[in-house]
Amino acid sequence: DDPVVIKFSHVVAENTPKGQMANRFKELVAEKTGGAVVVEVYPNSQLFGDDKVLEAMLLGDVQMAAPALSKFSRYTDVLALYDLPFLFQDLDAVDRFQQSEQGQAMLDSISRKGLIGLGYLHNGMKQLSSSKPLRTPEDAAGLKFRIMSSEVLEAQFKAVDAAPLKKPFSEVFTLLQTRAIDGQENTWSNIYSKKFFEVQPYITESNHGLLDYMVVTSKEFWMGLPDEQRAQVNAALREALDFGNQIARDKAIEDKGLIAESGRSEILELTPEQRAQWVEAMKPVWKKFEKEIGADLIDAAYAANTTDNQVASATDGQ
């Protein structure tokens, strides 16, 4: 028999957490299915960019991908939850929520459009980088920040009177370098790998937001797999995601260290008072999107910050 082929398309290099996770997944699937299912990984947007990959998946030409959560806005409103500022205080809280019943249910929010979320993959918590030191929300007023296309992120920067600008990722470095744009928000690993720290003298360790991915597949493909293979592939994915998430955590620490070591940008830490000011300024954004996302979902996510609310480790997706 010909093996079942899973084309896994992503847009980053092979040495990133996502790239390594995909390659690990490929090995694990080969192991667990004994070669009955073959994963082909296409890195660096070789197949499709993040904007078009989901459409290609619906056409049946790509079987798996892991776009950023913000990229799903055309398919569902609820995933905008993960863009809300200061919702999670750290990755542990994110993990607790994502593994909870509500977090797992969100994976199914795109099923009406023919897609199924299989799991979450971290990139990390977002920091603010800028050409000026940002300590309080007032410091950001009037500055231009690059954002990826997301209404929540737009509202987040407008909440501190800054100007959010949508610009393609490929142009960001040049625009920051020449100061055409003042700042941007990103994770430690992106700030390091895209060399943003070389052109941004200040990075505020704000941990104000989350940059995560969702591994998706098409319903048609997933349900078409024999039960046994689906279970095997799913098990391989769990393992690969744990592997990738650990790399992402390690990498955030490592890259932050490398940035600090380089001396090219100063890392600013917020005092509790300063942080409270940012939270106060940005929190109204939650209210704004409450209707689309659901108030109870926001509450549940926020509750994940306190450990006593921890939900017993979730069942495995499917």
């Binding site: 009037g142 100007a163 959010p164 600008l165 949508k166």
Partner: peptide
């Protein structure tokens, strides 16, 4: 808009 008024067009790029 960006250079003169520090603002942008949110649908401009698309």
């Amino acid at each position: 808009l960006r250079f003169g008024f520090s603002t942008g067009v949110s649908w401009g790029q698309e």
